[in-house]
Simulated scan of single mutants.
Amino acid sequence: MDKSSGRLFKIQPVLDYFLIKFRTVYKPKQQLTLDEGVIPWRGRLRFRTYNPAKIVKYGLLVRMVCESDTGYTCNMEIYTGEGKKLEETIYSVLAPNLGLWHHVYQDNYYNSTSIANLFLEHEKRVCGTIRVNRGLPPSLKFQQ
């Protein structure tokens, strides 16, 4: 997609600047986390998210890769509601750290067997809980 036509086109140069600085100033250790965060926002915005179960109910959803020890943000992507698949989002957020045998810790929202296979192909290890409906391997299924 052309950056001049995306929903973040007004802030894209600033966001790109910070992302380059995140990657060049500090090299993360081996343990990484993949999770989401919310930037509070009550104004009108097309891609503002709403989650009634959270303290911050309205805001911008940001998917981030952070170092486990320090919490340093290595990379992030703001969800804009433009129809990007979850696997593509995970791959694009982790792309700068591929091939380095990092250990990625994630919750059950991001974890699936297809994601784990993708990580192993790109020299990453994954740890996290897995949902039964996301392609549980036969060796892990409970048998009665």
Rank of each mutant, 00 (worst) to 15 (best):
K3A: 08
K3G: 04
S4L: 13
R7E: 10
L8F: 11
F9W: 13
I11V: 15
L15G: 06
L15A: 13
L15E: 06
D16M: 06
D16I: 02
I20A: 13
I20L: 12
F22M: 14
R23F: 03
P28N: 03
P28E: 00
P28A: 02
Q30N: 10
Q30C: 10
Q31V: 08
L32K: 01
E36I: 07
W41S: 10
G43L: 08
R44S: 10
L45H: 03
L45Q: 03
L45C: 15
R48L: 07
R48Q: 12
T49L: 04
Y50R: 05
K54S: 04
K54I: 10
L60P: 05
V62Y: 00
V62I: 11
R63W: 13
M64Q: 07
M64C: 13
V65D: 01
C66S: 14
S68P: 06
D69I: 04
D69A: 15
C74V: 14
N75L: 00
N75Y: 00
E77S: 09
T80K: 02
T80V: 13
G81E: 02
K85V: 05
E87Q: 12
E87V: 08
E87Y: 07
T89N: 08
I90D: 01
Y91C: 07
Y91G: 05
Y91V: 07
L94R: 04
A95S: 11
P96E: 02
N97D: 07
L98T: 13
W101S: 14
W101T: 10
H102R: 13
H103L: 15
H103M: 12
V104L: 01
Y105W: 02
D107I: 08
N108Q: 05
N108P: 06
Y109H: 07
Y109R: 02
T113V: 06
I115P: 08
A116D: 06
A116Y: 03
A116M: 14
L118E: 09
L118D: 12
L120W: 12
E121D: 12
R125I: 11
V126Q: 03
C127E: 09
G128D: 06
T129V: 06
R134C: 08
P137Y: 02
S139A: 12
S139V: 14
